[in-house]
Design a protein around this nucleic acid. Structure first.
Lengths: 144, 144
DNA sequence: AATATAAATAGGAATGTTACGAAGTAGGAG
DNA sequence: CTCCTACTTCGTAACATTCCTATTTATATT
């Protein structure tokens, strides 16, 4: 998934390619980690100071719907993160510093193969996240 | 995990059993679905009209830390849900109506067995969620 | 190149979730 | 019964996300 793929997908759905949208896509493409809406906003603001939060959220929502961006909800905070869909994968999230690392293992096939027959459910998405502490953050957690 | 187990766990950690706390636990125990903080608040408010949101959040956080409650972050909305920890399981979440159904399949063992050796990560938690539409909500989703 | 129009934007206000600090309250050990 | 400390309430605030409306603009079509 590169800039052209995204552009094509937008055109297919009659969506326009505004400078704001282009910059949002660029920010996601340039990042090796999933970004929060705030982070996208910050990045785009550098080149486009007047962009509004609404625009960022609207576009992240649109791109997610088009399937060119993955929306990830983490246990860490109550905000989600977004990343360009480049090959299906999941995430290890460090509870210490918040950084995330790709996890190639995907449980979905095994899940569907073990799924009992006609449940009436239509599955469209899934999430698998692993939480813990990365090498730099290996500190204990305690109550109180 | 029943009311006594929770009580014992609280005592073990020097935590008191206030009426508010008791009602919050009761609400979670009585529900077959994970509840949002708002839903817990609503339920408890019926018997304890003066309870504050802060108390609800503080207690849900504490109970999660003690491991008697699972905190679940869903892709659906940016709020989390809480449920009494009764046997490890995951969730199918309906994108139409928001209801959730238990999923017994857990990918964690397979994940750890396939995990390459010394990564420096210390894993403490994981999440697996399946999203789709339940029998009652089987409608398409479209852009625009 | 000019035009029309549907789509997209900015800006601000609104909504919803979660957290924090201070001051008072009460559970339960002794 | 007393005391200590955990706990609660209340107000406030931080933060994420969405809604509203007037305005602008990308792009297809002339």
């Amino acid at each position: 998934m590169n800039a052209d793929d995204v552009t094509k997908k937008l055109q297919e759905h009659g969506c326009r390619l505004t400078p704001q949208r282009r910059l949002i896509i660029q920010a996601l493409l340039a990042s090796r980690e999933p970004l929060t809406a705030q982070q996208v906003f910050n990045t785009v603001s550098l080149e486009f100071p007047n962009i509004s939060f609404d625009t960022v959220y609207r576009n992240l929502g649109l791109l997610s719907q088009l399937g060119v961006v993955n929306r990830i909800n983490l246990k860490v905070k109550f905000n989600c993160r977004f990343e360009i869909a480049r090959g299906h994968h999941h995430h290890f999230i460090c509870l210490g510093c918040g950084s995330s690392f790709p996890v190639d293992f995907c449980p979905f096939e095994q899940y569907t193969s073990e799924l009992p027959g006609n449940t009436g459910f239509r599955v469209v998405d899934h999430a698998f996240e692993v939480y813990g502490y990365c090498a730099g953050c290996n500190v204990g957690d305690s109550v109180h």
